[in-house]
Amino acid sequence: MSRKWIIRTVAAAILVLAALITLSACSSDDDGGDDGAGVTGVAEITERFQGLPQSGQTVGEENAPVEIVEYGDMQCPFCATAAESLNPQILDELVRTGDAKLTFVPVAFIGPDSETGALAVLAAANQDLTWNLTEILFANQGDENSGWLSEDFARDAAAAAGLDLATFDEDFQADETVEALFDSRERFTSDEGSGTPHYVVRGPNGQQIIPGQPTIEDLQQAVQEVS
């Protein structure tokens, strides 16, 4: 193969490669910040949980002395607000410090979309990604009972959260997941829940029930008192 033809071939290949890379980079710009299939906010949420251990529905050190339980409905706008403003503070000031771990328990009472969302985040527990999916769904919350949280959207969000979709699909349909949702409702009732968000702070020195959205100071005080 002559040097002339080698140069021509290499030059043509570099031109095609440059075009492909340009098109690839441009196609991401066209999506306007979506993180795939219309799901937004994924990178920020992924970063929020980076370096934090997750097990089932819980984020934080397994042997943390206090457990903060948050009950939430995936369609509840106040839960979405808490997810955006309060939960990052809980993670930074109580979970990363090892003072507490945070557990999300989904309940479904607003409508059918709530049920789909609750089953999705419970299914994600089997892959230890409940929190990522929960926060992604809250970040993409639509109008109540508008059909925004379809099974397809839940799958897209699950994929964006990094879940293995084949496993997720199986877990989403599993009887155990439905039973887990019934158990969640029982826990909610026994923890005196009547609306969401609803927080319970449990430690070696008892528990405190905090209905509605507390401030980070409320939670810090509760954690201190039950520790």
């Binding site: 196609s27 991401s28 795939g36 994924v42 897209d156 994929a159 964006a160 879940l163 293995d164 979709l165």
Partner: peptide, 20 residues
């Protein structure tokens, strides 16, 4: 579907990303 991730769990994220 999502590819079966033998190691790690990023297959779905990559496959569903805008760069796919």
């Amino acid at each position: 579907q999502s590819p079966t991730c033998v190691v790690g769990g990023g297959c779905a994220t990559v496959q569903e990303s805008e760069y796919s």
